[in-house]
């Protein structure tokens, strides 16, 4: 099987690959979002810690 044949998916390429594309996008988002949010939350805790240290 050649690569072009594989990508064509027997004429259904547009349907198959758009379905897979959406899936990859949603699954990637599900992983990226918590990783980014975690960084923000940790930064916030650090900031609060510094403020408390200054007050003390």
């Amino acid at each position: 099987m050649s690569l072009t044949e594989f990508l064509a998916m027997g004429g259904y390429g547009a349907y198959v690959w758009s379905a897979y594309g959406i899936t990859v996008a949603v699954l990637a988002w599900q992983l990226i979002l918590p990783v980014v949010q975690r960084r923000q939350i940790v930064r916030q805790i650090r900031r609060r810690k510094r403020q408390e240290a200054r007050r003390a």
Binding site: M9, G10, G11, Y12, V16, A19, Y20, T23
Partner: peptide, 14 residues
């Protein structure tokens, strides 16, 4: 269904 059925591998698990 030809190769269109291959959507099953993400559709059904989802």
């Amino acid at each position: 269904q030809g190769d269109a059925y291959r959507i099953i591998y993400i559709h059904v698990p989802a």
